Structure formats: C-alpha cells, structure tokens
Amino acid sequence: MTVKELTPDRVKLGITPTLWWNDDFPDIDIGIPFGEAVSEMALAGFQGCSIGHKYPTDPAELKSALDLRGLTVSEPWVSTYFTIDGMTEQTVAAFEDRLTFLKAVGGHDIVVAEFGNTSHILPVALFANRARFDDAQWDRLCDGLNRLGRIANEAGMRLCYHHHMGTGVMTRADVDRLLAGTDPALVNLLLDTGHLQFAGDDPLDAVRAHADRIKHVHLKDLRPPIVSRVREENLSFQQGIEDGVFTVPGDGSIDFEPILQALGDAGYEGWLVVEAEQDPAKANPLEYALKARRYLRDVLGW
C-alpha cells in the first residue's frame, strides 16, 4: 500500500540535524561538522532540513551551502517563554530576529515551543517534573502565540507550534487546549509523532481530530522498551535519548502508513520532516537517514 495523495507536488521531505548532533545537549556529539551533515542529508535523498546550532549564522552563507546541495530550509526553531513573567517582549524580539533570518534563507514555516519551566533540558525525571501551566499562564501563552502568528502572517510566513516532552504542551489534552485557545488563522500545529506517542497519546487520533490545523509534521519513531524505562526508572529526557528512545520512521513501533494516509486524505500540503534525536556514536547518522528515506519511499511510492 502506498499513500498516493502525498505526492511530490504537495509535500517535501526534510530531515533534522539531530541525527548528527543534539541541539539541546551539546555533549551528544562526535564532532561531525555542518558540511558533512548537510552533504549526507542530500546524499540520503532529502530535499530540506531544519536549522541546527552548527549551521552558519550568516543567512547568505547558509543559503549558498544548502543551494549547493539542493536543500532548502524546512524550518528554524524559536523557544518561547510567555509563561514566565516579564519574558514576553524578549520572546517576541527573538521571534522577529529569527523570522528575518528565515526570510533571508528562503524558508516559509517557523516552529515554536513554549519552554517556560520545561523539564526536558534538566537532569531530572522527565515525567514527574514536566511543566504544568495555570489558567493565567495558558492565557498568556495563547495570547502570545496569536501575536507571533500575526507577525508571521504579515511577513508571509507561517507559525507552527511544536508540542514537546517535558513542556506544558506535552499531551494530547494540552494540544487540544492550545488549539482551542488560539486563532486557527494565526497558529498552526506541528505534529510530532514521536513526542505525542512518548507522552502516551495516539498521533493518528490527533491527525483525525486536528488535520485542519496541522501544517508541519515531524516523523519520529519510538522504541517502547526505552519509553517504559524512562517512566518506571524516572529517567531524564537526555537519558532517554542516550538510551535510544527515538529512532527514524520504520525502525520503531509507530505505524506511519495510517498516519500519512489520514494526512493525505485531509489534503495535507507541507513538510514531512524525519527526526530522530539519537547518539551518533551509537546510531550512524547516514545509515539511519538512508533507512528513513527507504521507508518513506516504500510508503509514499517515491
């Protein structure tokens, strides 16, 4: 079976540099440089990539390097801090700076996630210490995201919210609340299959419920035995990554065919971005990038 609706004129295939190094945990790194990473992305057959911390900070230099390899930018990342008192204007300024950079490198989608009080970057139990927002914080977050979405729209760009382990928008219930509290014309959803399943929810159900809001997708797979260890042994997010909780599509437990079919049936257009936060010392990045591309070729038919 192939998902015939997700054709090359409707979707692009991207990959994140988290197969080659980790942006949250710089010590998960074996020294692979930027040029090698993006060359391997292109060699594996991807059309674009998200931005990592080793990328050139000059937009002209970055665009030239990506153009040389036939790649475009799928998205940059911006962390927001609306739930922390006094951080709104700083968050907006950082977003505007990143938007300017995105425009210069020829991208369209900009990805954000609220990191106020997140547990995922700390050496603490991931689930027990996840952020939880009170009503006032939820209001500030939704108002702030609407403001950023309006700024993005006015610049001809598109804001996509990334639910994330350890944050206050982690579970399906959190996603539902965020979407209910934000303007559909301003705030879109980035569906991350791995993060949602890690949180204990079904990404296929999320697609069926929110297909009209999903404008960007991260395809990330999971290894259930490691998920159980993280829960039962109170491991941190970093420990889970180092133990191999994430992998590329087709290498874990998630059945992506019905998820992609549901997206196709809903008329999805946009990026499908492979992501697997892995230790490159244990999982050769090019090997896993090729594995993901072969799997997507089987499922999509191209």
Rank of each mutant, 00 (worst) to 15 (best):
Ile121Pro: 05
Leu122Met: 14
Leu122Phe: 07
Leu122Gly: 01
Leu122Ile: 09
Pro123Tyr: 11
Pro123Met: 13
Pro123Glu: 10
Pro123Arg: 09
Pro123Trp: 10
Val124Gly: 10
Val124Gln: 13
Val124Ile: 15
Leu126Ser: 13
Phe127His: 13
Phe127Ala: 10
Ala128Ile: 06
Ala128Asn: 12
Ala128Pro: 00
Asn129Pro: 03
Asn129Met: 09
Asn129Glu: 14
Arg130Thr: 11
Arg130Met: 10
Ala131Val: 10
Arg132Leu: 15
Phe133Ser: 11
Phe133Gly: 06
Asp134Met: 08
Asp134Arg: 07
Asp135Cys: 07
Asp135Ser: 09
Ala136Asn: 14
Gln137Cys: 07
Trp138Gln: 04
Trp138Ala: 04
Trp138Gly: 03
Asp139Gln: 10
Asp139Glu: 11
Arg140Lys: 12
Arg140Cys: 02
Arg140Leu: 04
Arg140Gln: 05
Arg140Pro: 04
Leu141Ala: 04
Leu141Glu: 02
Leu141Gln: 00
Leu141Ser: 03
Leu141Asp: 03
Cys142Gln: 11
Cys142Gly: 08
Cys142Asn: 12
Asp143Gly: 03
Asp143Val: 11
Gly144Phe: 02
Gly144Gln: 03
Asn146Lys: 01
Asn146Pro: 08
Asn146Gly: 09
Arg147Ile: 06
Arg147Gly: 02
Leu148Tyr: 00
Leu148Met: 07
Leu148Gln: 02
Arg150Cys: 00
Arg150Leu: 05
Arg150Gly: 03
Arg150Lys: 07
Arg150Pro: 01
Ile151Trp: 01
Ile151Ser: 00
Ile151Val: 13
Ala152Phe: 03
Asn153Tyr: 10
Glu154Leu: 02
Ala155Thr: 01
Gly156Tyr: 06
Gly156His: 09
Met157Phe: 05
Met157Ser: 15
Met157Asp: 04
Arg158Thr: 14
Arg158Pro: 01
Arg158Gly: 01
Arg158Cys: 05
